[in-house]
């Protein structure tokens, strides 16, 4: 998967802590530099921010960037292909996150767009207002991509797993 990815035109590749300052810098880069239809660019922008915030909150590997606290560490890449833009991200997760992700992916699998929107509504209504995590990030990504989300989870030992996700946004 990584080799294929490197064969294509890489627009962005970042590995490190996903603190809020990095999110601002990379999302601005996407907004300013990615040459795409505005609808497509909006989707890339929104998916990047959801993926990046998931890494920040849920990566089991943390790094202290500044006095604001610990940030989750991971990797994100964006490449420009003939018919689509491809985003790839990976990070280390705990067993609890592994189970939560598997559950999310299982829920989304095989659903139509209308069904995914209904699922988002059901889950959002169930979420307490004071909960800072939306827990619908994967559903949101599924709606924005319009494509199947490819992912893999590989056991790394000591209760940790390497989680990788590939999301494609079609060009219009």
């Amino acid at each position: 998967m990584a080799k294929d990815f490197l064969d294509n035109e890489c627009l962005l590749h970042y590995k490190g802590p996903f603190c809020i300052h990095i999110l601002v810098t990379l999302s601005n880069y996407i907004k300013e530099m990615v040459d795409a239809n505005i609808v497509v660019k909006n989707r890339i922008y929104k998916i990047f921010l959801e993926v990046a915030q998931n890494i920040n909150y849920y990566s089991a590997v943390k790094s202290r960037v500044d006095s604001t606290g610990l940030s989750g560490v991971g990797m994100f890449s964006l490449s420009d292909e003939e018919d689509c833009f491809t985003m790839m991200a990976s990070n280390i997760i705990t067993e609890m996150q592994y189970r939560r992700l598997e559950e999310s992916m299982h829920e989304i699998k095989g659903l139509s767009t209308v069904e995914i929107r209904k699922l988002r509504s059901v889950k959002r209504l169930r979420q307490p207002l004071h909960d800072s995590a939306g827990h619908i990030g994967m559903i949101q990504i599924a709606l924005l991509t319009g494509n199947k989300i490819n992912y893999s989870i590989v056991e790394k030992g000591k209760g940790l797993y390497k989680y990788s996700i590939v999301v494609m946004v079609n060009k219009l």
């Binding site: 921010l49 959002r124 209504l125 995590a133 827990h135 619908i136 559903i139 949101q140």
Partner: peptide, 13 residues
């Protein structure tokens, strides 16, 4: 013009 999923819960509120 953009809000994350966590904000969407507050918008609902």
């Amino acid at each position: 013009i953009y809000f994350n999923t966590s904000t969407s819960r507050v918008v609902l509120g």
